[in-house]
Protein backbone atom coordinates (compact mmCIF):
# COMPACT_ATOMS: atom_id res chain seq x y z
CA UNK A 1 0.00 0.00 0.00
CA UNK A 2 1.54 3.34 -1.01
CA UNK A 3 2.17 6.04 1.56
CA UNK A 4 0.13 8.56 -0.39
CA UNK A 5 -2.88 6.30 -0.37
CA UNK A 6 -2.56 5.76 3.36
CA UNK A 7 -2.33 9.46 4.12
CA UNK A 8 -5.32 10.04 1.89
CA UNK A 9 -7.32 7.45 3.80
CA UNK A 10 -6.29 9.04 7.10
CA UNK A 11 -7.60 12.42 5.95
CA UNK A 12 -10.82 10.80 4.78
CA UNK A 13 -11.15 8.96 8.08
CA UNK A 14 -10.81 12.16 10.08
CA UNK A 15 -13.53 13.80 8.01
CA UNK A 16 -15.86 10.85 7.61
CA UNK A 17 -15.61 9.27 11.07
CA UNK A 18 -17.67 11.93 12.89
CA UNK A 19 -20.24 11.88 10.10
CA UNK A 20 -20.63 8.13 10.46
CA UNK A 21 -20.61 8.45 14.24
CA UNK A 22 -23.30 11.12 14.21
CA UNK A 23 -25.38 9.17 11.76
CA UNK A 24 -25.08 6.04 13.87
CA UNK A 25 -26.15 8.04 16.92
CA UNK A 26 -29.14 9.30 14.97
CA UNK A 27 -30.12 5.82 13.87
CA UNK A 28 -29.49 4.61 17.40
CA UNK A 29 -31.93 7.14 18.80
CA UNK A 30 -34.49 6.33 16.12
CA UNK A 31 -34.22 2.57 16.67
CA UNK A 32 -34.34 2.96 20.45
CA UNK A 33 -37.46 5.07 20.07
CA UNK A 34 -39.05 2.45 17.84
CA UNK A 35 -38.24 -0.29 20.34
CA UNK A 36 -40.08 1.76 22.93
CA UNK A 37 -43.05 2.22 20.63
CA UNK A 38 -42.26 5.84 19.82
CA UNK A 39 -41.42 7.63 16.61
CA UNK A 40 -38.24 9.24 17.85
CA UNK A 41 -36.21 12.15 16.57
CA UNK A 42 -35.14 12.56 12.96
CA UNK A 43 -31.99 10.65 11.99
CA UNK A 44 -30.06 13.91 11.54
CA UNK A 45 -30.89 14.91 15.11
CA UNK A 46 -27.32 14.53 16.55
CA UNK A 47 -26.04 16.96 13.93
CA UNK A 48 -28.75 19.47 14.78
CA UNK A 49 -27.82 19.11 18.44
CA UNK A 50 -24.15 19.68 17.83
CA UNK A 51 -24.66 22.64 15.49
CA UNK A 52 -27.04 24.17 17.99
CA UNK A 53 -24.50 23.70 20.77
CA UNK A 54 -21.92 25.55 18.70
CA UNK A 55 -24.34 28.46 18.56
CA UNK A 56 -24.86 28.59 22.31
CA UNK A 57 -23.25 31.14 24.57
CA UNK A 58 -19.79 30.10 25.75
CA UNK A 59 -19.45 29.13 29.37
CA UNK A 60 -16.70 27.24 31.05
CA UNK A 61 -16.15 26.30 34.66
CA UNK A 62 -12.34 26.56 34.47
CA UNK A 63 -9.71 27.06 31.80
CA UNK A 64 -8.07 23.78 32.82
CA UNK A 65 -11.21 21.87 32.01
CA UNK A 66 -11.21 23.40 28.56
CA UNK A 67 -7.65 22.25 27.96
CA UNK A 68 -8.53 18.72 29.02
CA UNK A 69 -11.58 18.75 26.79
CA UNK A 70 -9.53 19.78 23.78
CA UNK A 71 -6.87 17.23 24.70
CA UNK A 72 -9.53 14.51 24.74
CA UNK A 73 -10.73 15.45 21.26
CA UNK A 74 -7.22 15.80 19.83
CA UNK A 75 -6.02 12.49 21.20
CA UNK A 76 -9.06 10.61 19.97
CA UNK A 77 -8.59 12.12 16.50
CA UNK A 78 -4.91 11.14 16.66
CA UNK A 79 -5.92 7.59 17.52
CA UNK A 80 -8.23 7.54 14.49
CA UNK A 81 -5.41 8.84 12.28
CA UNK A 82 -3.03 6.17 13.55
CA UNK A 83 -5.68 3.56 12.90
CA UNK A 84 -6.22 4.79 9.35
CA UNK A 85 -2.45 4.79 8.79
CA UNK A 86 -2.55 1.11 9.81
CA UNK A 87 -0.06 1.58 12.59
CA UNK A 88 0.50 -0.46 15.68
CA UNK A 89 -2.79 -1.40 17.33
CA UNK A 90 -1.22 -0.98 20.75
CA UNK A 91 -0.25 2.63 19.95
CA UNK A 92 -3.80 3.34 18.82
CA UNK A 93 -5.21 1.94 22.04
CA UNK A 94 -2.76 3.77 24.27
CA UNK A 95 -3.54 7.08 22.60
CA UNK A 96 -7.23 6.31 23.03
CA UNK A 97 -6.70 5.55 26.72
CA UNK A 98 -4.77 8.76 27.20
CA UNK A 99 -7.65 10.68 25.63
CA UNK A 100 -10.17 9.04 27.93
CA UNK A 101 -8.00 9.80 30.95
CA UNK A 102 -8.01 13.45 29.92
CA UNK A 103 -11.80 13.39 29.79
CA UNK A 104 -11.92 12.06 33.34
CA UNK A 105 -9.32 14.56 34.54
CA UNK A 106 -11.32 17.32 32.88
CA UNK A 107 -14.36 16.28 34.91
CA UNK A 108 -12.24 16.07 38.07
CA UNK A 109 -10.71 19.50 37.53
CA UNK A 110 -13.86 21.38 38.54
CA UNK A 111 -15.38 21.61 41.96
CA UNK A 112 -18.93 20.53 41.19
CA UNK A 113 -19.64 17.34 43.16
CA UNK A 114 -21.60 15.85 40.28
CA UNK A 115 -18.70 16.38 37.93
CA UNK A 116 -16.29 14.98 40.51
CA UNK A 117 -18.34 11.85 41.02
CA UNK A 118 -18.78 11.52 37.29
CA UNK A 119 -15.02 11.75 36.85
CA UNK A 120 -14.47 9.11 39.51
CA UNK A 121 -16.94 6.83 37.86
CA UNK A 122 -15.38 7.43 34.46
CA UNK A 123 -12.06 6.32 35.91
CA UNK A 124 -13.68 3.22 37.36
CA UNK A 125 -15.32 2.54 34.04
CA UNK A 126 -11.95 3.01 32.42
CA UNK A 127 -10.43 0.60 34.90
CA UNK A 128 -13.11 -1.89 33.89
CA UNK A 129 -12.67 -1.83 30.11
CA UNK A 130 -9.06 -0.84 29.60
CA UNK A 131 -7.52 -4.21 30.56
CA UNK A 132 -10.03 -6.05 28.41
CA UNK A 133 -9.39 -3.89 25.38
CA UNK A 134 -5.65 -4.23 25.83
CA UNK A 135 -5.76 -7.95 26.46
CA UNK A 136 -8.01 -8.49 23.45
CA UNK A 137 -5.13 -7.37 21.27
CA UNK A 138 -2.85 -10.08 22.64
CA UNK A 139 -4.57 -13.01 20.89
CA UNK A 140 -4.39 -11.05 17.62
CA UNK A 141 -0.66 -10.62 18.13
CA UNK A 142 -0.32 -14.29 19.07
CA UNK A 143 -2.06 -15.29 15.90
CA UNK A 144 -0.22 -12.92 13.57
CA UNK A 145 3.04 -12.37 15.47
CA UNK A 146 2.59 -8.60 15.15
CA UNK A 147 0.61 -5.76 16.64
CA UNK A 148 0.48 -3.83 13.39
CA UNK A 149 -2.91 -3.26 11.80
CA UNK A 150 -1.29 -3.51 8.38
CA UNK A 151 -0.37 -7.11 9.20
CA UNK A 152 -4.01 -7.94 9.79
CA UNK A 153 -4.87 -6.56 6.37
CA UNK A 154 -2.05 -8.53 4.78
CA UNK A 155 -2.60 -11.80 6.65
CA UNK A 156 -5.17 -13.16 4.18
CA UNK A 157 -7.02 -14.94 7.00
CA UNK A 158 -10.10 -13.60 8.77
CA UNK A 159 -9.56 -13.44 12.53
CA UNK A 160 -13.07 -14.04 13.79
CA UNK A 161 -13.14 -17.86 13.49
CA UNK A 162 -10.10 -18.04 15.74
CA UNK A 163 -10.75 -15.13 18.03
CA UNK A 164 -14.49 -15.12 18.57
CA UNK A 165 -14.03 -15.35 22.33
CA UNK A 166 -12.02 -12.12 22.35
CA UNK A 167 -14.63 -10.64 20.05
CA UNK A 168 -17.34 -11.26 22.64
CA UNK A 169 -15.13 -9.61 25.26
CA UNK A 170 -14.80 -6.60 22.95
CA UNK A 171 -18.60 -6.37 22.72
CA UNK A 172 -18.67 -5.66 26.45
CA UNK A 173 -16.11 -2.91 25.90
CA UNK A 174 -18.23 -1.47 23.11
CA UNK A 175 -21.26 -1.31 25.40
CA UNK A 176 -19.22 0.55 27.99
CA UNK A 177 -17.76 3.00 25.49
CA UNK A 178 -21.17 3.67 23.99
CA UNK A 179 -22.42 4.27 27.55
CA UNK A 180 -25.31 1.89 27.23
CA UNK A 181 -27.22 -0.04 29.88
CA UNK A 182 -26.27 -1.96 31.93
CA UNK A 183 -22.95 -0.11 31.90
CA UNK A 184 -24.02 3.53 31.68
CA UNK A 185 -22.72 4.48 35.08
CA UNK A 186 -20.71 7.63 34.52
CA UNK A 187 -22.90 9.38 32.01
CA UNK A 188 -25.88 7.81 30.40
CA UNK A 189 -27.27 8.89 27.06
CA UNK A 190 -30.31 10.27 28.80
CA UNK A 191 -29.90 12.56 31.71
CA UNK A 192 -32.41 10.70 33.87
CA UNK A 193 -29.67 9.42 36.05
CA UNK A 194 -28.55 10.15 39.57
CA UNK A 195 -25.48 12.05 38.36
CA UNK A 196 -27.24 13.99 35.56
CA UNK A 197 -24.56 12.97 33.06
CA UNK A 198 -22.02 13.81 35.74
CA UNK A 199 -19.03 13.63 33.45
CA UNK A 200 -20.12 16.48 31.22
CA UNK A 201 -22.14 18.46 33.77
CA UNK A 202 -19.75 21.39 33.62
CA UNK A 203 -19.14 21.38 29.89
CA UNK A 204 -21.63 23.62 28.15
CA UNK A 205 -22.37 25.00 24.73
CA UNK A 206 -19.62 24.58 22.12
CA UNK A 207 -17.42 22.59 24.50
CA UNK A 208 -20.13 20.01 25.02
CA UNK A 209 -20.36 19.77 21.24
CA UNK A 210 -16.62 19.01 21.09
CA UNK A 211 -16.99 16.25 23.66
CA UNK A 212 -19.91 14.86 21.67
CA UNK A 213 -17.88 14.84 18.45
CA UNK A 214 -14.96 13.17 20.22
CA UNK A 215 -17.42 10.60 21.44
CA UNK A 216 -18.51 9.88 17.86
CA UNK A 217 -14.88 9.37 16.86
CA UNK A 218 -14.40 7.03 19.80
CA UNK A 219 -17.42 4.94 18.87
CA UNK A 220 -16.39 4.68 15.22
CA UNK A 221 -12.87 3.70 16.24
CA UNK A 222 -14.18 0.94 18.48
CA UNK A 223 -16.50 -0.30 15.73
CA UNK A 224 -13.56 -0.30 13.30
CA UNK A 225 -11.52 -2.39 15.72
CA UNK A 226 -14.41 -4.85 15.82
CA UNK A 227 -14.50 -4.74 12.03
CA UNK A 228 -10.84 -5.75 11.92
CA UNK A 229 -11.91 -9.27 12.72
CA UNK A 230 -12.89 -9.89 9.11
CA UNK A 231 -11.12 -7.42 6.85
CA UNK A 232 -9.57 -9.89 4.46
CA UNK A 233 -10.65 -12.52 2.00
CA UNK A 234 -13.39 -12.27 -0.57
CA UNK A 235 -15.94 -11.59 2.17
CA UNK A 236 -14.22 -8.38 3.33
CA UNK A 237 -17.54 -6.53 3.43
CA UNK A 238 -18.50 -8.77 6.32
CA UNK A 239 -16.38 -6.51 8.52
CA UNK A 240 -18.91 -3.72 8.10
CA UNK A 241 -21.78 -6.08 8.82
CA UNK A 242 -19.97 -7.44 11.88
CA UNK A 243 -19.39 -3.93 13.22
CA UNK A 244 -22.98 -2.86 12.62
CA UNK A 245 -24.33 -6.15 13.94
CA UNK A 246 -22.45 -5.81 17.19
CA UNK A 247 -23.63 -2.21 17.42
CA UNK A 248 -27.23 -3.41 17.03
CA UNK A 249 -26.79 -6.08 19.70
CA UNK A 250 -25.61 -3.39 22.11
CA UNK A 251 -28.76 -1.40 21.32
CA UNK A 252 -30.96 -4.38 22.11
CA UNK A 253 -29.15 -5.08 25.36
CA UNK A 254 -29.47 -1.42 26.29
CA UNK A 255 -33.22 -1.62 25.92
CA UNK A 256 -33.76 -4.80 27.87
CA UNK A 257 -31.72 -4.09 30.95
CA UNK A 258 -31.53 -1.68 33.84
CA UNK A 259 -28.42 0.24 34.78
CA UNK A 260 -26.24 -1.64 37.22
CA UNK A 261 -23.75 -0.39 39.74
CA UNK A 262 -20.06 0.20 39.20
CA UNK A 263 -18.99 -2.56 41.59
CA UNK A 264 -20.98 -5.09 39.61
CA UNK A 265 -19.62 -3.73 36.36
CA UNK A 266 -16.03 -4.02 37.51
CA UNK A 267 -16.56 -7.59 38.68
CA UNK A 268 -18.44 -8.61 35.57
CA UNK A 269 -16.10 -7.10 32.99
CA UNK A 270 -13.00 -8.42 34.67
CA UNK A 271 -14.30 -11.92 35.29
CA UNK A 272 -16.11 -12.30 31.99
CA UNK A 273 -13.61 -10.38 29.87
CA UNK A 274 -10.44 -11.84 31.28
CA UNK A 275 -11.75 -15.39 31.31
CA UNK A 276 -12.97 -15.07 27.71
CA UNK A 277 -9.69 -13.68 26.47
CA UNK A 278 -7.65 -15.96 28.71
CA UNK A 279 -9.33 -19.04 27.33
CA UNK A 280 -8.88 -17.63 23.84
CA UNK A 281 -5.13 -17.29 24.41
CA UNK A 282 -5.04 -20.74 25.92
CA UNK A 283 -6.86 -22.28 22.96
CA UNK A 284 -4.52 -20.57 20.52
CA UNK A 285 -1.52 -21.86 22.41
CA UNK A 286 -3.00 -25.34 22.45
CA UNK A 287 -3.57 -25.01 18.76
CA UNK A 288 -7.34 -25.50 18.99
CA UNK A 289 -8.23 -22.21 17.36
Amino acid sequence: MSTGWLIGSAVIAVIVAPLIGGLLRGIDRKLTAHMQGRIGPPIMQPFYDVIKLFGKERCVAGKAQLVFGYAYLTLIVTAVVFFALRQDLLVVLFILFLGCIFLAIGALSVKSPYSQLGGHRELLQFLAYEPILLLAVVPIALKLQSFRIATIFESGQPLLPHLWLSFIALLIVLAIVMRKSPFDISSSEHAHQELVRGLVTEYAGPYLALIEIAHWYEMVLLLSILGLFWVVGSLWWLSIIIALGSWFIILIVDNISARLTWSWMLRFTWVAGISLIGSNILFINLGWM
Partner: peptide, 21 residues
Protein backbone atom coordinates in the same frame (compact mmCIF):
# COMPACT_ATOMS: atom_id res chain seq x y z
CA UNK B 1 -33.40 -9.10 30.77
CA UNK B 2 -34.96 -11.63 28.36
CA UNK B 3 -38.46 -10.76 29.55
CA UNK B 4 -38.34 -7.32 28.02
CA UNK B 5 -37.10 -8.66 24.71
CA UNK B 6 -40.41 -9.77 23.12
CA UNK B 7 -41.93 -6.36 23.80
CA UNK B 8 -39.16 -4.32 22.24
CA UNK B 9 -38.85 -6.72 19.32
CA UNK B 10 -42.56 -6.41 18.66
CA UNK B 11 -42.40 -2.63 18.97
CA UNK B 12 -39.46 -2.44 16.58
CA UNK B 13 -41.45 -4.02 13.78
CA UNK B 14 -44.84 -2.48 14.41
CA UNK B 15 -46.09 1.01 13.85
CA UNK B 16 -45.30 3.37 16.74
CA UNK B 17 -48.27 4.19 18.94
CA UNK B 18 -47.41 7.89 18.94
CA UNK B 19 -50.18 10.28 18.08
CA UNK B 20 -48.60 12.62 15.59
CA UNK B 21 -49.95 15.75 17.18
Amino acid sequence: MPWMFPTIWKNLFSRPVTRRY
